[in-house]
Computed example of a mutant assay.
Amino acid sequence: MNAIVDSRTSADLELPPKFVIPEMLSVIRPRIHTYYPVIKRLHAEWLYENYGKPEPGSLHGAIERMDSLYDAAVFPDGIPERIAHHASILTLIFQCDDLTISDPVRCEKIIAEDPDAHDARVMDALWQTIRRNAPSEAVYQRLRGRWTRWMQHLKVENAFRDNWLNEDMDSFLQVRLMSSGMQAYIAAIEYVQDIDVSDVIDDPDLKRAVDLVGWHCAITNDVYSYAAEYFTEDSVSAVRIMRNTRGLDAQQAITAVCEMLEGMYAELAGRIEKLHDRYAQHPLGERLHRYLDTYLLMVAGTLQWHIESPRYGGHGHLWNGLPMRHVDVALAFGDKMVGAGVPQQTPTGSVYVS
């Protein structure tokens, strides 16, 4: 009995909390791609072609979750068709991520590119499309290589999840950097904007900017998913690490994590400004500066998607237009929205947000 009690965290022993997610990133305005309706339509066509149309009155998870909105928000500039290609990759990445817990054998088949697995065949067809359209072989290899590395890293994240009570924030950040997927998204900027920046990607300031984008986007996800994953044992986040290592309650931990995000953004903005100056005469001209600005827009777009998407807000979630969110975990639906081609069922409850 004592061993069971001693293994619990403060979150296990408390009543489900209420907390406020404060306004973040007031210094930058998010943008959505002008052709977002086209991107959404193209993504939906791909989804129906590969997973079939749902029954009347229902939606595929990838549509209700707004996968296409995410890529339209983090890539507000770029070729619409290519953004739709990458939004489809995102759908399969969500699929693989969810399957690590619900169906690890199926997930492993995707990672192994098993030709007998439907999701793996769909993924391979997408990579063929991306290779045909990529501005260079180097960009294609960079993008595919980073997503492949992300899928292979899932095992590392699972091992970390099993022992997270023994970890601190520094060790968590190193694992989260790889699991966020933003290193692949940085490579995807080149694909959607039709450029090759192979000559600058080894710049130390740019490498640090990649890490900062990865951490910021991942931890934003941790903040907004905390309520939906509060009752699950398979989720580890910056909020849970902060609570466990510092003995904070939910609101204190949310506030502390958001302050950490502010520091990351300030450093990111400073690095990007330095890079603009350093490459003022780069042969790509304004195209390179648009590429650099996308690092900042990715952070803003990620935040906006988490505000708007039902992925963690619950089925039927609508953003009320306010920059902060009030959350009552007692009303959480207990699991996040999953599935690529699976029509979503009406839940019994939802996270309350206002």
Results as ranks from 00 to 15, higher is better:
241 I>L: 13
132 R>C: 08
115 P>L: 10
280 A>P: 07
156 V>W: 13
80 P>Y: 14
169 M>R: 13
12 D>T: 06
166 N>F: 04
229 E>G: 10
97 D>P: 05
90 L>F: 00
28 I>G: 08
231 F>P: 02
343 P>K: 07
76 P>E: 01
58 S>D: 04
225 S>G: 06
353 V>R: 15
171 S>W: 13
279 Y>G: 02
9 T>Q: 13
229 E>V: 10
308 E>G: 00
191 Y>T: 04
232 T>I: 11
228 A>M: 11
291 Y>N: 05
332 A>M: 11
337 M>F: 00
187 A>W: 08
247 G>S: 12
204 P>G: 07
271 R>K: 00
39 I>Y: 01
22 P>G: 13
320 N>W: 08
76 P>L: 05
135 P>S: 05
86 H>S: 00
101 I>E: 05
284 L>E: 05
96 C>I: 14
340 A>E: 02
290 R>I: 12
306 H>G: 02
24 M>W: 15
164 W>A: 10
161 R>W: 06
13 L>F: 14
332 A>H: 02
118 H>Q: 15
219 I>T: 03
112 A>T: 01
91 T>E: 02
291 Y>L: 09
190 E>Y: 13
243 R>L: 11
184 A>C: 09
76 P>H: 01
157 E>D: 03
66 M>W: 04
144 R>C: 07
111 I>V: 15
261 L>F: 03
147 W>Q: 00
152 Q>P: 12
172 F>Q: 00
343 P>V: 14
315 H>W: 00
73 A>R: 09
